[in-house]
Each structure stands twice: as structure tokens, then as C-alpha cells.
Design a protein around this nucleic acid. Structure first.
Lengths: 131, 131
DNA sequence: ATTATGTATGCTAGATAGCGCATATGTGCA
DNA sequence: TGCACATATGCGCTATCTAGCATACATAAT
């Protein structure tokens, strides 16, 4: 049962559900920096959450140069497929809409379908001295 | 999203998954003492876990005299129904088989389909002075 | 009323999780 | 070989979770 508990634990977090929602509602794999900018969360946090999701078998990662593209698992088992379907069935919230809007803006900056930028957001701490 | 996180948190525990598995695989509502004996866990723990599951909308409770019978929700929303289906899809482990065996033994002691006993198990601490 | 009993809850300690921060790792390019 | 940059990780802190224990609550029987 432990494997299932791990999956549920991975899903029991707001930020990770936001990540999954983006992956579920956008038909594309996403790199860490695109997710970081979309969620407006610090890069190190997004990276950690991605690791947890991956270890739980809920996403997959593919490296391409300096970038790592994350996507839903190709052939998830029945259990995980059911979980992902459940997450997909949740009606969109304001926050999810905003995340998706941010993401679409970021994706529009791709070149040949590939991300060519890093994190633009530079979240909390980065603009301590901003007006 | 918080409501969903609460549901996933409720599922992210071994004992609670065992409870759900019993409810999913036995076609009957179950009272606290039957679950306590089946899981061989202390009564206060089972009670706490039941509360968490109920607050998450994953089980329902019905009081009848001194007994409280728990069952799967009558009409769960799509999200929760999907989650419960996922839990049901998990192949049975040794432990789950044992739980079910214990439960069937307990259920066979019912009278007119009702539980007439309390906790027989009297788990850890209860038999400190036992041989 | 008082007692017996099924169930629930308050409290504490130990374990675990997530954030913020600094920094490491690894890849591509000059 | 060294720099730039996307991503990952180790550490300290705080918050949250769960088991264990004692006990409270509620209902039924005497």
C-alpha cells in the first residue's frame, strides 16, 4: 500500500496540483522555467515539487540540453490514470485560470516549440529593492 | 483547490486506505468496533481516521444506538468517485487480505445484520500483562 | 440515577513536510 | 578552460501529522 500512499501524498499539496493541472490542460510538455513563471513560485520550489511528482510516478521528465521537459506519464497504471482523471475532473478555479493564462503567455515565447528562455519571473527576494 | 488537497491528504495514510479498502470490498456498512478488530489497531486511532475520512467526504457515518456505521458516500461527486475507484483498482496485498479475513470473521458474529459486540481486540497496551 | 459500553476527543511527543536561502550540478557556448 | 544559465539539492526553520494515553461523551440497561 505504501506506493499508493506516496502517490496520494504527492497529490496532497496545492502547488503540485497546480502543476498537474497545467500539464493536464495544456497538450504539451513543460519545462521547469515555464512552470516557475506560470505559477509565480520560486524556481527551487517548483523543482522540488516536480521531483516529488516524478518519484510518485505522476509525471515524467525528459532532458534536452539544459532544459528538462515534464509531462504526464505515457502509460500510467490504472491507479495513477484514475488519479489523474480525478484531478482533471476538478472545475477550474480563478487561480488555475491565471496559471494557464501565464503559461500560454510563456509558451507563446517558444521557438520551434522549444523553450529558449530561463526563468523570467525571478520571484520573491529578487525584487526586494523594487519600487 | 483546498477541498481536493484535503481529500488527498485523507487518502495519504496507510491505515485510512485500509479502512477504505474494507469498505470498498465488503458490500456492507461497518461500525467502528468491527473496523478496529479487523485492522488490529487501537480504537481511538480508528475513530480518528474515520473522522478524517468523513470530513474529506470519502465516507459517511450513520448512528444507530451506541453504534456508528460507516459506509462509502451515497452520491459522491465526480472527483471523489474517481478517487474511490482508483483505490478500488489497487491489487490486493497480503495485509488487505488479512484485514478482510478478520472483518469477515467479525461480520459473521453479527445478529440480524447488526453488530452486537464492542471491540474484542483490545489492542496494544491492553494486554501488557498477558502471557 | 447509576453503570456499562461504543465511540469520540484533548494532550503530548516524535516524525515528517514545505518554504526560504544559498549553493551545487550539469550542459552549451565562447 | 572558463563562463552563462537551467535545474537540482542540502540545510535550518516552522508547521502539520499521527501514535499513544487518558478521558469525555452518548446511549442503553439495570
Amino acid at each position: 500500500m505504501t506506493e499508493q500512499v506516496e502517490a496520494f501524498k504527492a497529490l496532497a499539496d496545492d502547488t503540485r496540483l497546480r502543476i498537474l493541472n497545467l500539464l493536464l490542460r495544456v497538450g504539451s510538455e513543460l519545462c521547469c522555467c515555464e512552470l516557475t513563471d506560470s505559477l509565480e513560485e520560486p524556481q527551487y520550489n517548483v523543482s522540488k515539487h516536480l521531483k516529488i511528482l516524478r518519484q510518485a510516478g505522476l509525471i515524467e521528465g525528459r532532458q534536452e540540453g539544459r532544459w528538462v521537459y515534464y509531462s504526464l506519464p505515457e502509460r500510467p497504471d490504472e491507479f495513477r490514470r484514475g488519479l489523474l482523471d480525478s484531478v482533471r475532473s476538478v472545475p477550474e478555479t480563478r487561480r488555475m485560470k491565471k496559471d494557464k493564462k501565464n503559461l500560454n503567455r510563456r509558451i507563446s515565447l517558444r521557438q520551434d516549440g522549444k523553450c529558449i528562455l530561463g526563468v523570467l519571473h525571478r520571484q520573491p527576494g529578487g525584487d526586494k529593492n523594487a519600487a
